[in-house]
Amino acid sequence: MTQSPKPNSPFATHTARSVSLRIAGLPGAAIVLSFGLVLSVWALLGAWSEVPDTILPAPWDVWGAALELWYNGSLLTDLGASLGRAGIGFAIGSTLGIGVGLLTGRVAIARVMLGPVLSLLRPIPAIALVPLAIVWFGIGEGSKYFVVSYTVFLAVWFNTHHGMQYLPETYLRAARSLGATPRREFVSVMLPSVAPHILAGVRLGVALSFLSLVAAELSGASSGLGFRLQEARQYIRTDRMFALLIILGALGAAADFVVQRLGAKLVHWEQA
């Protein structure tokens, strides 16, 4: 019989490293295992008669509710409305956040004038602005765009501002000693250095765009995933609530994955 390697032997160490590398190289297996475990526990609780469906619907009931939304056509309509609002609000908020963050991070007068005000606005949650947004822009699309772009703007601004403010001065001195013009200094030194911070802010903004979107759609909307959640609550359709929450989570995870992959290609020097 072949003897198993001793725990502290070089062969055992090499084997453990190989196994860990194989596991690390299979993120799909980890995802399947994680979701499989959660679904198994969820199915057991759903099958337990002591837990009412209005509290915790079974996975198959949630799947049935999702199919019901799909076949009656409301899911596609709500997805289109929500993705459009989140996309437009994210584009406005991230663009303004990057621009203002670059400005306040390097220009002292802009930092003094805008920094305290923006720091005061950051703790205000998006849902608290919904009544004000309705007063300002009505119950149409403008109020939704405002709430989403406000939330995204603050997240992207903070990360961009932080990266720009703490840019190592040695980089700038080295560029100036080589005769770089201010434009060349900005394009070749500042932007590459602050790009990872911008990417982190954009990834956070993607997640916050969906969070604030639901807050915006909970009142004054006639379509969208947030509106459908509110409707399901009124009719105590917990299965629909779970289905819509899972769809929202999947959309957010997919958007974050896309931004992460694009960021890895654009900010490739950070991966080295």
Rank of each mutant, 00 (worst) to 15 (best):
M1P: 06
Q3F: 13
Q3W: 09
P7V: 07
S9D: 08
A12D: 05
T15V: 12
T15I: 12
S18A: 15
S18K: 15
I31Y: 10
V32Y: 09
A43E: 05
L44Q: 11
L44A: 15
L45F: 11
W48Y: 14
V51I: 12
P52N: 07
D53W: 08
D53N: 10
T54M: 13
W60K: 13
W63M: 15
G64Q: 09
E68S: 14
Y71G: 07
G73R: 08
A86I: 03
G87S: 15
G93M: 05
S94M: 04
G97D: 00
L103V: 01
R106V: 11
A108E: 12
M113V: 12
P116L: 05
V117R: 07
A126Y: 03
P131K: 01
I134C: 02
V135K: 11
W136E: 07
G138V: 01
E141Q: 14
G142W: 06
G142D: 12
F146S: 05
F158C: 07
N159T: 10
Y166M: 01
L167P: 00
P168F: 08
T170R: 14
Y171C: 08
R173S: 09
R176F: 02
P182Q: 07
R183G: 10
R183E: 12
F186I: 06
F186G: 02
L191N: 02
H197Q: 13
A200N: 11
L204N: 12
G205A: 04
A207W: 03
S209Y: 03
V214Y: 06
S219L: 15
G220Q: 05
S222F: 15
G224F: 10
G224A: 07
G226F: 05
R228F: 00
R228E: 10
I236G: 03
I236L: 14
R237L: 04
R240W: 09
I246D: 04
I246V: 12
A254I: 14
L266D: 08
V267P: 10
A272Q: 11
